[in-house]
């Protein structure tokens, strides 16, 4: 093997160059092919989506502004009512935020357990690690709407189905993220605690949690942001809160667009507000860690 490479060495400059060019060309070819496949997928996908849609893309494009313009102009005409409407829908907003908050809380607790039980080195029952990992995979894979719709059928409409649905998904998603963090946790404090005779939950609370808390809180806040959006969307399929009111307001159509506008404003304001607050707090958490 070595002989051959040495044997090739003398004519190397030209050889290396040609081989290099060959390699570059090959890479370019692959890159071009990937790009071509990507473009073909995008274009044909767009055409399929366009063909299967009720209205076409090009006809719809110039109508995008119509609905917002209608809503805005009507809201502007009745702008005197707007504060009243915002006050009227404020309880629904509180419900939406509550759904997000409770489900995040429950999800964090569930995610904590899933991550601790599914991480090597921390697990209480090491043999069960794959079980808990699969469990959190499945919980993560179920879209909220699936559980919400089924629970609405069983429990009736309202905030509880949405809460449970989002909590399950959150637990699965956080379980995965948490366990990625927990894998990097230092095991020495755990050994120290074990030597004092601490049991599993004491080891987890005193040994692992303080190490991972900043990351966990940061993930939980991010999740809270996501869950506010999710709870608004689930409201639209009948699970209470602002989304539900939005659907009703939309169903009334023109003449009641001021109500829709009030809800739009509330939802937009809430999302932006919590985005800003949580991203500021998360930045502080992660910065504090790097120092």
């Amino acid at each position: 093997m070595a002989d051959i490479t040495f044997g090739d060495a003398p004519d190397s400059v030209a050889g290396i160059q040609s081989r290099y060019m060959e390699q570059v060309q090959k890479r370019r070819l692959y890159g071009g092919l990937t790009l071509l496949i990507f473009v073909v997928l995008m274009v044909s996908g767009f055409n399929i989506a366009d063909a299967r849609n009720a209205g076409g893309f090009w006809e719809g494009l110039h109508q995008i502004g119509d609905y917002p313009a209608d809503v805005l102009s009507e809201a502007w005409e009745k702008r005197a009512d707007l504060p009243g409407l915002i006050a009227k829908y404020f309880p629904a907003l509180i419900e939406t935020i509550n759904i997000a908050a409770v489900s995040t809380l429950i999800g964090v607790i569930g995610g904590l357990f899933l991550s601790m039980l599914g991480t090597r080195g921390l697990a209480k029952w090491p043999r069960m690690i794959p079980v808990f990992r699969r469990l959190s995979d499945v919980m993560r894979a179920v879209p909220e709407i699936v559980i919400a719709l089924v629970l609405i059928f069983v429990l009736g409409g309202g905030p509880v189905p949405a809460m449970i649905a989002i909590a399950i998904h959150t637990a699965g998603a956080l379980g995965k993220l948490f366990s990625e963090v927990a894998e990097n946790a230092d095991l020495k404090p755990l050994e120290g605690l074990e030597s004092t005779g601490a049991n599993w939950s004491q080891r987890m609370i005193l040994g692992v949690l303080p190490q991972v808390a900043p990351n966990y809180i940061s993930y939980a806040l991010l999740r809270f942001e996501i869950n506010i959006r999710a709870s608004a969307i689930l409201g639209f399929v009948g699970a209470g809160g602002l989304g539900y009111e939005l659907r009703n307001a939309m169903a009334w159509g023109p003449g009641r667009f001021d109500e829709a506008a009030a809800i739009f404003i509330l939802l937009f304001g809430t999302i932006v507000f919590f985005d800003q607050v949580s991203s500021r707090y998360r930045n502080r958490l992660t910065e504090g860690q790097t120092q």
Binding site: D50, G60, Y67, P68, F264
Partner: peptide, 28 residues
Amino acid sequence: FDFLRGVDALIWTVVLARAFGPGPLTGT
């Protein structure tokens, strides 16, 4: 960017469905 994110998929869906009608294109 903040505006696009803040309006949220729900409202975009509602608004776009008015222009494009129901179907996968609207969701896209």
